[in-house]
Write a protein that binds this DNA or RNA. Structure first.
Ligand code: MN
Ligand code: MN
Ligand code: ZN
Ligand code: ZN
Lengths: 157, 157
DNA sequence: CTGATAATGAAAATCATTTTCATTCTAGTG
DNA sequence: CACTAGAATGAAAATGATTTTCATTATCAG
């Protein structure tokens, strides 16, 4: 479609100062991808993000969506998850979504993914003691701890 | 490579009665795959299992290793893991290995995977309270809980 | 405005895993 | 022992998500 990156927003892009400066440009595609992530509750596959993005701008390419999501991910704006079905899914970062740290429940029957919040593992003291245990015993520096719970959702019960 | 399944062991296959009966046959390939898993400490990719297996029997095919591992996995003899590098890795089941339940530390620098044992999450009461919390709040029946810790190993510190 | 550099999209390439299919084995059965 | 239905195997082809390549287009500092 070749028609200018930022058409529409101009500069008002709301996705972080980190990206401004350092040669990373706020383009329409990136803006749209971020916007989709921002306005979506759930966990989206690349293909799903593409569909959403194309509702606003027909000609956006799959490759660009891959690249935009990767960019947002490597800059901490979105999380990249893998629930074992052979494709990545993305969701807005915990801080941006306001959800705070959370884990996931994955139904092995219908595949539904559900956020798990307020569990013992979210508690600061738990995470803390876990990290120090790991450092003491293994000299391993924990950066990120990810928990996935597999089972049956209420539907598939 | 076409020369008889069980050559070597005959029946003495030590991999569970579950497989006997029900038409599942103890073949040489399966025996070798299981044997490799049994005598290996770590976490092996399919390709690595293939290499090991071929040290004993040249002609074993990659497809068969995939199928054997899948068979062992679906019968609970081996665990199938994914550390996010785009390929599955396998390890002997917790009961067969004697390791008991454990989690993993993954170094994001060198990729090394290390077993994590004795952490708070292994404690029975923790797992129990976690499961009941999840059941109460989400009506979700927990079958399996998996924890991965990403960070830097002692080498890459 | 212009040039250097970044971004884009289509198509091709990767790469792990799965499927297909013709061939070979196995475990009975008589 | 001779036979057979069904299981297992391996090579090759197919899949499918993600990445790479490359020619084209857009951005923006000067
Ligand atoms: Mn989530
Ligand atoms: Mn392990
Ligand atoms: Zn379900
Ligand atoms: Zn390391």
């Amino acid at each position: 479609m070749r028609q200018g990156y930022g058409r529409g927003q101009g500069r008002g892009h709301r996705w972080g100062r980190q990206l401004e400066s350092s040669g990373i440009r706020p383009t329409l595609a990136r803006e749209l991808v971020f916007s989709v992530m921002e306005s979506s509750e759930g966990h989206l596959s690349v293909e799903e993000v593409l569909q959403e993005v194309r509702k606003s701008e027909e000609g956006i390419g799959l490759t660009t969506v891959y690249r935009s999501l990767e960019l947002l991910h490597s800059n901490g704006l979105v999380k990249k998850l893998d629930f074992g079905d052979g494709r990545a899914v993305f969701e807005l970062s915990d801080t941006l979504s306001g959800k705070g740290p959370h884990q996931h429940l994955i139904c092995r029957s219908c595949g539904q993914v559900q956020d798990l919040t307020g569990s013992p593992v979210d508690k600061e003291d738990f995470a803390g003691s876990m990290k120090s245990f790991i450092r003491e015993k293994y000299r391993f520096t924990t950066e990120n701890m990810e928990i996935k719970v597999y089972g049956l959702c209420s539907e598939c019960g």
